[in-house]
Design a protein around this nucleic acid. Structure first.
Length: 282
DNA sequence: TAATAAATAT
DNA sequence: CATATTTATT
């Protein structure tokens, strides 16, 4: 254990905390804000869109439950509704695990950002996120190949790709051209994820956290407002709804269990970062 | 400062 | 969709 370790270790502990312990905490951290349906998906041609989308794009509205007075002190004219830059997505090990799982189930051939994203069914996750991560993942795999064969473990690898190292990499990924085709798929490595612990709480927290996401990135350090609305449990779960996949030659195998997302303010700086984390088991 | 990670552009 | 480049964060 050297000082070097403490560097990434400090942030690491924030990524793999006991969800059960964080749950109660999340409840305290949650802060009610404006609600916007960013979950909407623009469908080019929607044959029968039964859109349960009550909240139209007319959002902007802030509940103004607390002091919505001067949000941007000095920032005259803030345009929250539009021009909303999505917070930096933090790929947590669990999320990456799900990513790898999705790729493993889809196969290298079908492992395209779009399909992966759809299979992951993680709300808030966009194709760009998956694409970017996928590219990094590929590079990681390529590097692993080069080192496998005589090259010993490089400390740099473990230190640089600790995130990827956290996720089990299917052997198939390391062998592109093998057995002619890579359309095999024995079974899903995804064991059994049936932990319904207090997902409700997580769900509620996530719901509120989503709201935070849309909110401006001001508020340096958001303490707890201590206004726990008791009307958030009726929203079912956070997992993405069974999105009917249209325009797909081969239908995806099946959606993975379910994952919720959590928004956490990393870095005391105040930069809001969206950290989706699957509340399954690792 | 440099390095890593994600976002964005090509 | 894949790759390259730029930007933000550590």
């Amino acid at each position: 254990m050297r000082e070097e370790d403490s560097n990434w270790f400090s942030r690491w502990e924030e990524q793999l905390p006991s969800p059960e312990e964080l749950m109660p905490i999340s409840q305290s951290l949650i802060t009610p804000e404006l609600s916007m349906a960013f979950d909407i998906r623009n469908l080019p041609n929607s044959p029968q869109p039964p859109p349960p989308v009550p909240p139209p794009p007319s959002s902007q509205p802030l509940s103004a439950e607390f002091d919505s007075g001067d949000l941007g002190s000095g920032a005259a004219g803030d345009e929250p509704a539009r021009t909303l830059k999505r917070p930096r997505l933090v790929w947590t090990p669990q999320l990456h695990k799900r990513f790898v799982d999705a790729v493993a189930h889809l196969g290298i051939k079908n492992a395209v950002p779009k399909t992966i994203m759809q299979l992951m069914s993680v709300d808030g996750l966009t194709r760009e996120n998956v694409a970017s991560h996928l590219q990094k993942y590929r590079l990681y795999l390529k590097r692993m190949q080069g080192l496998s064969g005589g090259g010993p473990l490089s400390a740099a690898d473990a230190a640089t790709d600790h995130l990827f190292a956290s996720a089990p990499v299917p052997a198939h990924f390391l062998h592109p051209g093998r057995s002619g085709s890579d359309h095999f798929l024995p079974f899903v490595p995804v064991a059994a994820l049936q932990h319904h612990h207090h997902q409700q709480l997580v769900a509620a927290a996530q719901q509120q956290q989503q709201q935070q996401q849309q909110q401006q990135y001001h508020h340096r350090q958001v303490g707890h407002f201590g206004s726990p609305p008791s009307r958030q449990f009726e929203h079912g779960f956070l997992m993405r709804q069974p999105q009917p996949v249209h325009r797909m030659g081969a239908a995806v195998p099946t959606q993975l269990p379910a994952y919720a997302e959590d928004l956490e303010s990393a870095t005391g700086g105040g930069r809001k970062v969206l950290t989706l984390f699957p509340n399954g088991d690792d």
